[in-house]
Amino acid sequence: MKRIFYNALNAVGVLLTLLVLWRTLIWVFSIPAYMLPTPFAVAKTVINRFSSLTNSFWITALAAASGLLVSIFIGTTVALIFAQSQWLRRMLLPYTILLQTVPIVAIAPLIIMWAGAGLFAVSLITFIICLAPIIANTTQGLVSVDENMVNLFLMQNASGAQILWKLRLPHALPSLFIGVRIASGIAVIGAITGELFAGSSSIGQGGLGYSITYALAQLQTDYLFALVLAASVLGFLFFFAVMFLEYYFLHNWHESARKTESQ
């Protein structure tokens, strides 16, 4: 308890120091507000424009969450198909790596051209960059089941469905979560990147990425800072949501979740 208090005190201390340093820099170098607003100005903007800020926040959250959820669903399905045959894996797994290496900024304009600007395009971009880590990790988890465990099920004349639901899927769950953890980090980045290209056509109606380009064009630097802050909060929320789910599903039996518990 005492340690938690001191850790919190440290974190607050670091934050205050940074804020003071920020304000001092503006004062020492006489930086104009359109280049770097003061922490106080940013805080004031957050309060004054809270409704449009939360509006953008939820639009981006929706795009990122839907892209991530669909990628978990499709990614697991693809992994299940890959797990059926080594031949299929050898043939198609390299393409999932390609999926991971292709720069999203390069294909985002293409997707917008095909799908049209808006939530769907942004979700699609998020989905594409989240897919690869989920396929790769889940496949790995599905195929690394101990041979004797499979034999155990075969001895009981277990059906293919029983082996899948009672053995392969629970065995793959920790690996699936590794994939989801990676994907949740890039989901928010993907959604914001997508919005930079295809946020919305009407002003004030776009997500965080769209509002960032808008604020930049208008030289509303204080609002830009507020948006960056909101994007960070969104990233944190995704991270903790996944951590919580991972703990909930795995803490009874798996090492990775137990380590988090003891820290």
């Binding site: 004797n148 155990l152 001895m155 277990a158 629970p170």
Partner: peptide, 26 residues
Amino acid sequence: SYIFQDATLLPWRTVEQNVGLRLELE
């Protein structure tokens, strides 16, 4: 019945769920 060298227990199942596995499968 087959007993393997390592106990081959399913780590996500409790002791009683592991013992009941074969009964559950049938």
